[in-house]
Write a protein that binds this DNA or RNA. Structure first.
Lengths: 197, 197
DNA sequence: GACAGTGAGACGGTTTCCGTCTTAGTGTCT
DNA sequence: AGACACTAAGACGGAAACCGTCTCACTGTC
């Protein structure tokens, strides 16, 4: 299994993912057809449907999951080594906010179910973000606070970051570290029911 | 309530044109639907089809014609007052090349028949450009050369400008005035069968 | 030769889109 | 008030695009 044959399906899969990226950024979710993706990837339709049985939904879901993992993996790299809960939270907020602002399609890809607009994000797509974020981030908070408390914090933070991304405020800029830190000190840390270790 | 007072059909027509622009620049020709345009323009379908009987083709053709006119009207403003044929030709080349390069959708809009890609431009769409260009520019060359000679020159210039736009050369840059002037002096003016007035 | 992976494309079912048409609502003019 | 012009909203049928599946031929590897 670990033996990599000369014909590497991984390359094709990567090409398809890249094609989805390219097509979506060019035309948006709604306008992209499977044929667009096939042509862009330089791949036959049969191949796409064989690699992603179920078609469009399955493929797009796979792309979204991949994006989610990449996003949080990159984030974890940024927040690892934090020496305090405050530091960790601040880094989370800043990195996530910047990344969201940087890649417009990311937010769409991360959260939305096919056919869903960005405006509905706070309604339905948020759940999965919170879920994945919790799974990725809470392990890093272990040394500071217990798991259930962490889950609670992550939940709130997710909603705040996304809310401020979708509808930026003139009073708080989460892409700014000082602002984020001030916010954490003022609103988050005091809310903890257990004193940080 | 959005009370539209004394709704003038011109406003609606302009809104539709703007909507086409917006939609095309967002999704491209092929991906745009009439409903997209209607929604973007904030206008009912019936209205669009009444203003442009024939539907999609007629509307898009109208948009293209409008673009063509705007393009050459703007160009004429730039080349009016030329004191020599050389000056006039150089200005034509430079203005057209810059304008084409500036607005990527312009070339598409100017030349292509619906469903046609930019690569086919030299084949089919070029005829109409040459036609309109001739109609707009030849009047301005009257004081330098006779009409039939002008038509010939305009024809050649159109093809050159478009060719260099579609496939830029490393030796000649038509958006550069000096390069264009040098080219005109070297290849165009000597080819005239009649000495310039 | 057996085999696995791929390209090309046909096929039927579904959805979307187009263009037309009808109806109702609104503002204007006489 | 009543006639009129214009538009929004949406139903409707036919056409086209799209989706997902499937078959067949081709290619490189074992």
């Amino acid at each position: 299994m670990s033996v990599v044959t000369s014909s590497q399906p991984r390359d094709i899969e990567a090409a398809i993912f890249a094609a989805v990226d390219s097509c979506v950024s060019q035309w948006g979710w709604d306008k992209v057809t499977m044929d667009d993706i096939c042509v862009t990837a330089g791949v036959s339709r049969a191949t796409v449907y064989r690699l992603f049985p179920g078609g469009r939904d399955v493929l797009f879901e796979a792309v979204r999951l991949g994006k989610l993992e990449n996003f949080f993996t990159a984030m974890r790299a940024h927040i690892e080594g934090s020496e305090s809960l405050e530091d960790l939270l601040v880094r989370c907020i800043v990195v996530a906010s910047i990344e969201l602002q940087h890649d417009e399609h990311l937010a769409m890809m991360l959260a939305t179910v096919p056919g869903e607009t960005l405006g509905d994000l706070t309604v339905s797509g948020l759940g999965r973000i919170v879920r994945v974020a919790t799974a990725f981030i809470t392990p890093l908070t272990d040394e500071f606070i217990p798991g259930d408390e962490a889950a609670h914090i992550v939940d709130v933070m997710c909603r705040l970051v996304i809310s401020y991304y979708l509808s930026p405020s003139s009073t708080i800029d989460f892409t700014n570290e000082d602002a984020a830190r001030h916010f954490v000190q003022r609103f988050v840390l005091p809310a903890l029911t257990i004193t940080t270790k």
